[in-house]
């Protein structure tokens, strides 16, 4: 069936609400408004205000309430409008959700799922367009996933809800309108493994989330140039699936990491470091990184486009690892 990324998530939320009475959705404008990105449109009528809860603009309180409700046996899905807003709830996510299991000696776990939009591409400028998932991926105790495909948008939520620990789901905002085919019987998928989205032999392009499409376009362009690029979709940003990354790089001997976060202190930096630590002698070329320019994401389209990774930049970086110029 033809479905959008948005509808795939909505289908997943609906399924979760139907399957498990402990599941509920809360967040800003998830009910009457239908969700800032229309993900929850129609769910209020279907499930009622107890389970589709509109919250005040109190990120810390409602994220913390999700943590508390999870501690007391519920399975909350907390929607935060964008990653930039989630900074108002950092205390709850970092100081409570991530720590309580370890700090309590394993007595309490927190099966909360926190979804949020991330990334640039819709000219929303610097307070609605950053990619801060790499920050969250820094934190032990959190599980961080980034669905880049319809299958993952449909299937990661249920698995995240079944996980006894906090899972943060990052939905890139340009993906919501992505349309494609999804099997009728599509359901839960794992949230542990990276996936090879395109096989190749010359260079590994390692990416996730909103950059997957651009990276696949780059791989296509490279193919036209006789370069066989393999595309690895991380899917899970913490923990990283190093076996899949290493196996790809060991095969191609070259790595380009595409990450919409800023390069300094990024997820791309972490993957580069691990490749140097674990696969240094497998590499035939320096690792390349295609990341966002080190600026707050600007509003005008031409500057926004220039600030974030684009297929041309990925192609150029890949060619360089093969010693080709231009």
């Amino acid at each position: 069936m033809t479905i959008t990324y948005r509808e795939a998530i909505r289908t997943a939320v609906r399924e979760a609400l139907t399957r498990d009475s402990r599941v509920f959705l809360m967040g800003e404008d998830v009910g009457r408004y239908g969700g800032a990105y229309a993900v929850s449109k129609g769910l209020l009528a279907e499930f009622g205000p107890e389970r589709i809860r509109d919250t005040p603009l109190s990120e810390s309180a409602f994220v913390g309430a999700g943590i508390g409700a999870a501690l007391a046996g519920m399975r909350p899905i907390v929607e935060v409008m964008t990653v930039n807003f989630s900074l108002l709830a950092l205390d709850q996510i970092v100081n409570n959700a991530a720590t309580i299991r370890h700090m309590s000696g394993g007595q309490f776990s927190i099966p909360v799922v926190i979804r949020m939009a991330t990334g640039a591409g819709r000219q929303l400028a610097a307070q609605h367009a950053h990619s801060l998932e790499g920050w969250y991926a820094h934190i032990p105790g959190l599980r961080i996933v980034a669905p880049a495909t319809l299958e993952d948008a449909r299937g990661m939520l249920w698995t995240a809800l079944e996980d006894p620990d906090p899972v943060l789901i990052f939905e890139h905002q340009v993906l919501y309108n992505m349309e494609g085919q999804l099997a009728e019987h599509a359901g839960a998928v794992d949230i542990d493994r990276a996936a090879v989205r395109r096989d190749g032999t010359d260079v590994s392009l390692i990416t996730y989330g909103g950059s997957l499409g651009k990276t696949l376009q780059a791989a296509e362009a490279l193919a036209g140039d006789g370069i066989s690029a393999e595309v690895v979709d991380l899917r899970t940003l913490r923990p990283l699936d190093m076996p899949v990354i290493l196996s790809s790089v060991t095969k191609t001997r070259r790595a380009v990491i595409v990450d919409e976060g800023w390069k300094s202190g990024s997820l791309a930096a972490e993957i580069s470091a691990r490749l140097v630590e674990q696969a240094f002698y497998e590499l035939d070329a320096p690792i390349a990184r295609v990341c966002s320019a080190e600026v707050p994401i600007p509003y005008p389209k031409h500057l926004e486009d220039a600030a974030v990774p684009q297929p041309a930049g990925i192609v150029a970086a890949a060619r360089q690892t093969l010693g080709r110029r231009g």
């Binding site: 409700a69 205390d91 309580i100 309490f108």
Partner: peptide, 29 residues
């Protein structure tokens, strides 16, 4: 950071104010 499942003691929170949202969530459940 005192925790105890048997007595439903949810910390021991060393961030001033950080326990209040959690209490709201426990009550919501």
């Amino acid at each position: 950071h005192v925790f105890d499942a048997d007595t439903r003691f949810y910390g021991g929170n060393a961030i001033v104010g950080g326990g209040l949202p959690v209490a709201v969530g426990l009550a919501l459940a």
